[in-house]
Amino acid sequence: MLVTVNGEQRETRAAHVEALLDELEYASKHLAVAVNYDVIPRARWASAPLKDGDCVEILTPRQGG
């Protein structure tokens, strides 16, 4: 299926958020994830399902003003 990850379309077989992070080899310890504007707490990454067309944002701490 096709999902959009941080603005880029990607083909994936991941059934849930955690599988997607593994598939894309995310290594950072400090991540927060939203799917279609819904924040998915870390405790739900392994259960939050992904479906075709989902829009996933994977974010991290950064400098700000």
Binding site: K29, H30, I58, L59, T60, P61, Q63, G65
Partner: peptide, 22 residues
């Protein structure tokens, strides 16, 4: 201090590095 959230690249650890500094 003010901080932000931004997209993390696959495989990247920029967030972790910044977190340590703070």
């Amino acid at each position: 201090v003010t901080v932000s959230v931004r997209r993390e690249m696959a495989g990247g650890k920029t967030g972790d590095a910044f977190w340590s500094l703070i």
